[in-house]
Design a protein around this nucleic acid. Structure first.
Length: 100
DNA sequence: TTCCTGACGCTCG
DNA sequence: GCGAGCGCCAGGA
């Protein structure tokens, strides 16, 4: 699925512009790389909305197409992960992608 | 409309 | 170097 498809689905689900921007920015993180919540916030033009970024990722309806597991905290720790398996699963996925 | 909550970051002691 | 407290922003009740 490409970026346009993702945006379309999110619009259909009634997501706000802010939420869509967050998920698109997350989708753009290349495989094998990670980004911080702060990075995402900065990328969408709301450098102080890092907390809201987490709120959006929590309800990510397009996992794993939108790789929310690639978003980590700025201190290098994983933060949280709401999908089944939790942070352990998140760690495994990142290792599988050689992101960490 | 207002208040509360949250997958966080930064500053200060 | 470490922990606590405060600030930020958006969404939901």
């Amino acid at each position: 699925m490409d970026e346009r498809g993702i945006r379309k689905r999110l619009v259909q689900k009634g997501f706000t512009d802010f939420q869509i921007k967050v998920l698109i920015a997350t989708y753009r993180i290349p495989k094998g790389k990670t980004a911080t919540y702060k990075d995402i916030a900065k990328r969408i033009g709301h450098p102080h909305a890092y907390r809201a970024v987490g709120s959006v990722l929590k309800i990510n309806p397009l996992a794993p197409t939108v790789p929310c597991h690639r978003v980590i905290k700025s201190d290098g720790s994983l933060g949280n992960f709401s999908s089944p398996g939790g942070t352990r699963r998140k760690m495994q996925m990142l290792k599988a992608e050689r992101a960490i």
